[in-house]
Design a protein around this nucleic acid. Structure first.
Lengths: 133, 133
DNA sequence: CTGCAAAAGAAAATTATTTTCTTTTAAGCC
DNA sequence: GGCTTAAAAGAAAATAATTTTCTTTTGCAG
């Protein structure tokens, strides 16, 4: 039935209404920060606690369902984990977009130069989006 | 004389002993977080205030002398601004290294795909360094 | 339908960062 | 070199962000 509930259970998390709402918001917005998560949550669950948001976000991170995206000069946002991608941040409207572009070459090049065994990449590019130009 | 003092003055910042020490630490370590900055500062200036660290770091960021590097799953570090580069973070020892590798192609590719006018890039790669393998 | 481990909510505690206010000091000027 | 002053330092309080604790509620396995 509820596919969101299934997703939570696959990650060993009880499918509570609050958690389902969080996942739905992440699915809908792609990226969302704690503040927005909380204020949107309040609309549907007027007595939700901020501690619930934090606790759930942390559990979802631990379970590998979501990840935190730290953005220079701005608040962190959270997103469902999916295939590797990079983040475009618009310096005018603040919009964040995912771009699936081959980062393989940078990683390969960096691997060669540094001798590191690279496991994860976090790439954020800041600029002005087409709508704001 | 003091080249560090000159650097501060070029950025319209009074060359106080505390600021000189901060810049020296950044030059020496490359990357350093608030906590380490504070504890090392205490050795030389036993009565330094944490507020002084924060205020100076913020002023140095505003003046374009340094920048904050936000790292997934870890505390932010600060570094002197220099030519574009990427950050390698070792998941074993926590060491952070700069790599000057051509990120131009990712940026170009992303620019083409997204239509953004890209101004800055923040690239962090996580993996295991040669020493920890 | 029942029992219980886990989650929610409320409030307090902790940690991180900023602000305020008073004292001290770097640096331009004579 | 001493004087002036705007800016910085330091101390403490204030604010913001996040976590913890504790009690009540609830999802879900049996």
């Amino acid at each position: 039935m509820h596919e969101t509930a299934e997703l939570l259970k696959e990650h060993q998390l009880k499918a509570t209404p609050q958690r389902i709402k969080i996942v739905r918001m992440l699915e809908e917005h792609g990226h969302i920060n704690i503040e927005d998560l909380y204020s949107q949550m309040l609309e549907e669950f007027p007595s939700v606690s901020l501690a619930t948001i934090y606790k759930n976000i942390n559990q979802m991170i631990e379970s590998g369902l979501i990840q935190e995206v730290k953005i220079p000069k701005t608040k962190s946002v959270f997103e469902l984990i999916k295939e590797p991608h990079l983040h475009m941040v618009c310096d005018k409207c603040g919009k964040i977009e995912d771009i699936c572009v081959g980062t393989d070459r940078v990683i390969e090049e960096a691997q060669k130069l540094s001798g590191y065994d690279i496991k994860e990449s976090f790439i954020t590019l800041r600029g002005t989006c087409p709508d704001c130009r």
